[in-house]
Simulated assay, not measured.
Amino acid sequence: MDGIKVTKDNVLYGALTAWQPVDGPRVTVDTILLASFVKARGKDRILELGCATGVISLLLALRLPEATKIEGIDIQEDLVNLAKRNAQENGLDARVSFFLSDLRNIKDRYASQSFDVVVTNPPYDEPHRSRWTDSFSDATARQGLYCSLKDVVKAAHFVLKNKGHLFMIFRAQRGAELVAALVNENLEPKRLQMVHPYPGKKATVILVEAVRSAGKGVVIESPLYIYDGEGNFTPELLAAYDLSKE
């Protein structure tokens, strides 16, 4: 399929099925946590930057009212084709659309202030900071071969309406860099949540909600732990997998 090896997998205990590359970006707990972290209203227009196989956008379609319209863009044609197939096979293609596009050239596709909400799980690393992975697709998605953190934030600022909301997940170790990049583009951090593997362990990722042209002031939410002290999934983690909570 599309020249790459793929698998078809269940997501959220089968609420969604998704074709994914064997060697490339796949659904992880970060995918689920970001989709659960997003807040939107019924008629919001949502854009996912770097949609890969489209799972975050499709999860949002399941969680949000039917009036919500969602688009996703990615630079990898194979992944966009999988995203389109995933939307069709899950019966969500009327609400969710995917396009081949480079977020660095966002102005070529969208007008300024076109969206109410932007969602992104951007590359956590950059080529000069990390060891090269064998998979070109994976390196593009995770190591920022074609976009930097600054590129992602600039694109989000351009397409967001004033008071529009940006939702991101990012490597916790680069949290200060992320906050600085957001503030520099007039995207004010409003909600932060650190995600830890276990109590007592350092955070691995950070969930961030920022608002375009907003005032100062941020809410630091309670930490989210993946496992409790006995190695069981925490109620907070399990809640992210539960569609009924919406």
Rank of each mutant, 00 (worst) to 15 (best):
M168C: 11
V119Y: 03
C147L: 12
E221C: 10
G217N: 11
N105L: 14
P123Q: 03
P122N: 04
L160H: 06
V211W: 03
V152I: 13
I169S: 08
L192A: 01
G215Y: 02
F170L: 07
D125Y: 15
N121I: 06
L192C: 04
K107L: 02
E185A: 15
E177F: 09
M194Y: 12
D138E: 12
A155R: 10
F167Y: 15
L224P: 00
C147H: 06
P199F: 08
G217D: 10
V118M: 09
E188W: 09
S135Y: 00
L182N: 05
S114E: 12
S130R: 14
S148K: 11
A141Y: 10
V159T: 10
I220Y: 14
A176Q: 13
L145F: 13
D134P: 11
K190L: 00
H128D: 14
H128S: 14
A181Y: 10
V208D: 01
D134E: 15
S222Q: 14
M168T: 10
A203W: 10
Q113F: 02
S114Q: 10
N162R: 15
G144T: 12
S135W: 00
S135K: 00
E209G: 01
A111M: 11
R171K: 15
A210I: 05
R142H: 11
R191D: 05
I206Y: 01
A155I: 11
N121F: 07
G164C: 10
V119Q: 03
Y110K: 05
R191L: 07
K202Q: 13
N186P: 01
T204I: 12
I206W: 02
S213R: 14
S112Y: 03
A139N: 11
S135F: 00
A210C: 08
G217R: 08
N121M: 06
A156Q: 08
L187P: 01
Q113M: 08
H128P: 02
A155G: 09
N105A: 13
G144F: 11
H128C: 04
E126G: 04
V183L: 13
D138F: 13
K150L: 06
A172V: 03
S114I: 09
A139M: 09
V219L: 10
R212F: 07
P223G: 06
I169V: 15
V118L: 09
V205F: 04
K107E: 15
V195S: 01
A214K: 03
A181M: 11
I220F: 15
V218L: 15
V159N: 08
V208E: 01
E209M: 14
K190W: 00
R109Q: 05
L178A: 09
E177A: 14
P127L: 06
